[in-house]
Design a protein around this nucleic acid. Structure first.
Length: 231
DNA sequence: ACATTAAATTCGA
DNA sequence: TCGAATTTAATGT
């Protein structure tokens, strides 16, 4: 049963922002040291409290970062879609992982060993520049979340969730089409699927996006960002 | 929660 | 390998 051509680990690394800045020798070494793993839907990509021994990238699929409180309630911190990398914070601090990462659909992940990550930091200046950019972008993301906080309207939270996906430092060269189901947007923004549906149509009505089957196309990114802040 | 529609899968030729 | 039939998933209300 031959199925659609799936993206190889090699292709994913070669297209990544940081893979492109390595020398060929560095790249080959990293490629051989990096493992690939498949995670089923709702499977665990990484668990809070466990030792961090990889830097993780999404080859294809979708994940989310979330925290679970003692009483069992969870809060989603951020979505992680294809081409996104995460875990560098805990890796740098050599501390247990501070959040869960869960696959929202069947997902393939790339695992860069901590030792490889460390060697890149020790030997590659371009890699360090990339890391600074990445971490700065993440900081900006979380500051933005604090600004908006829980005060935003559901419509604005959906707008923010979509706009976040267009940060070129976190997600390299995205097209305007967002490959997320309405229920997945709900999982990322903490809203019901029904409410997301309503919000998407409101955003479409004011001309920021087009609602399509299996996703949305962003037609006015600036407007979407503005809406996400104004609420 | 339910009805409608679109997509994916199965199966027979 | 094709397409009709069936099942599954996404959407809109």
């Amino acid at each position: 049963m031959p199925k659609a051509p799936t993206r190889t680990l090699h292709e994913m690394l070669a297209a990544s922002t940081w893979g492109r800045v390595l020398t060929p020798a560095e790249f080959d070494l990293v490629l051989h040291e990096t493992r690939e793993r498949h995670v089923p839907q709702n499977g665990c990509i990484a668990r809070m409290g466990h030792p961090v021994d990889h830097w993780i990238g999404i080859i294809e699929g979708l994940g989310k970062m979330s925290v679970t409180l003692a009483d069992g309630k969870t809060s989603t911190l951020a979505g992680v879609c294809a081409d996104a990398w995460f875990g560098e914070g805990s890796l740098l601090k050599r501390e247990p992982r501070r959040y869960d990462a869960v696959a929202l659909r069947p997902t393939r992940i790339a695992l860069v060993p901590a030792a490889t990550f460390q060697r890149l930091r020790d030997t590659s200046l371009p890699f360090n520049h990339y890391l600074q950019t990445l971490m700065n972008a993440r900081l900006g993301l979380f500051i933005g979340m604090l600004e908006g906080g829980r005060l935003l309207s559901p419509d604005a939270r959906v707008a923010r969730c979509l706009a976040q996906l267009f940060n070129p430092d976190l997600y390299p060269d995205p097209g305007p089409f967002v490959d997320l189901r309405q229920n997945e947007i709900g999982l990322l923004s903490g809203l019901s699927r029904q409410r997301v549906n309503t919000a998407l149509h409101e955003l479409e009505r004011i001309g920021l996006i087009r609602v399509e089957s299996r996703g949305v196309t962003v037609t006015d990114l600036q407007g979407l960002r503005a809406y996400a802040c104004a609420g």
